[in-house]
Simulated scan of single mutants.
Amino acid sequence: MVTAAFVAEPIYVRASCAMAGVMARTDRERGVWKAPANVALIGVEGLASIDSANNTVSPIRIDDGINYQLVKDKINPIREFRGKGFLAWGARTAEDPIRPDWLYISVRRLFNAVERDLSQALRIAAFEPNNAITWERIRSALDIYLDGLWRKGALLGSAPQEAYFVRIGQGVTMTETDIKQGKLIVKLGMAAVRPAEFIELQFTQDMVS
């Protein structure tokens, strides 16, 4: 529920629309690899459930119990916290938790973004000689791109070789047959950063004897 300064009545906005704005702002301020969660929703005054059949609006509040059920049902809630306002409080996809590779929105969107960027970048190689000189140009360009992501904090690892790899070449990613058929194959891998979803505190107390 959003109240604009120039209207007397509140404007009801779907949660999906609000989250689209949260994602756009997070992308701009931090990067696509930052989970769009624990982020404040600007201009929101309350949460409401709308019954379109009966044309009624009911205020709602997401407590820990409801939050648990929503997460179990693969729904990321919006919650109100005292002194913090309304926060996006979840960053999971609809993937099954037993398959953690694509469990988080930020990981899925990072790989989507990299795939898009590199697909566009590799178009410059179209109709170039499929030889070692071209392969090295591509490997170097991809290395620079992925190194930039690592330095911005998008990838894990204390060194670039721990964060990603780029492989290209005959006998590495391509056979002689591939090359004769005009195929240029690049393989890369990334160690994506996952959000710290569960914060655990451990305390010890030394007893004085």
Score class of each variant (00 low, 15 high):
residue 3 T to M: 10
residue 4 A to L: 12
residue 5 A to R: 07
residue 10 P to L: 06
residue 13 V to S: 00
residue 17 C to S: 12
residue 19 M to V: 02
residue 23 M to W: 12
residue 27 D to M: 11
residue 28 R to K: 14
residue 30 R to V: 10
residue 31 G to V: 05
residue 35 A to K: 05
residue 36 P to R: 01
residue 40 A to C: 06
residue 40 A to T: 08
residue 42 I to Y: 04
residue 44 V to E: 01
residue 45 E to N: 14
residue 46 G to M: 03
residue 47 L to V: 02
residue 49 S to F: 14
residue 51 D to K: 04
residue 51 D to R: 03
residue 57 V to F: 02
residue 62 I to Y: 01
residue 63 D to K: 00
residue 63 D to L: 03
residue 64 D to L: 09
residue 66 I to W: 06
residue 66 I to Q: 08
residue 67 N to K: 11
residue 69 Q to F: 09
residue 69 Q to R: 14
residue 70 L to M: 14
residue 70 L to R: 05
residue 74 K to T: 03
residue 74 K to I: 03
residue 77 P to M: 03
residue 84 K to S: 12
residue 86 F to R: 01
residue 86 F to I: 01
residue 89 W to G: 00
residue 89 W to H: 05
residue 91 A to T: 04
residue 97 P to W: 05
residue 98 I to P: 00
residue 100 P to A: 09
residue 104 Y to P: 04
residue 106 S to T: 06
residue 106 S to W: 01
residue 107 V to S: 12
residue 108 R to H: 03
residue 108 R to A: 10
residue 113 A to Q: 10
residue 114 V to F: 03
residue 114 V to L: 09
residue 116 R to K: 14
residue 123 R to H: 10
residue 123 R to V: 07
residue 124 I to C: 06
residue 125 A to R: 05
residue 127 F to R: 10
residue 127 F to H: 08
residue 130 N to M: 05
residue 135 W to V: 02
residue 137 R to P: 01
residue 137 R to D: 07
residue 137 R to F: 10
residue 138 I to L: 14
residue 140 S to M: 06
residue 148 G to V: 07
residue 148 G to F: 07
residue 152 K to P: 02
residue 152 K to M: 13
residue 152 K to V: 05
residue 153 G to Y: 02
residue 156 L to R: 15
residue 157 G to K: 07
residue 160 P to H: 08
residue 163 A to E: 06
residue 166 V to R: 05
residue 167 R to Q: 15
residue 167 R to L: 13
residue 170 Q to E: 13
residue 171 G to N: 09
residue 172 V to L: 13
residue 172 V to S: 12
residue 174 M to F: 04
residue 174 M to R: 12
residue 177 T to G: 13
residue 178 D to G: 09
residue 179 I to K: 12
residue 182 G to T: 08
residue 188 L to Y: 15
residue 189 G to W: 09
residue 190 M to C: 11
residue 191 A to T: 11
residue 198 F to Q: 15
residue 199 I to L: 15
residue 199 I to W: 09
residue 204 T to I: 13
residue 206 D to V: 15
residue 207 M to H: 09
residue 208 V to Q: 15
residue 209 S to P: 14
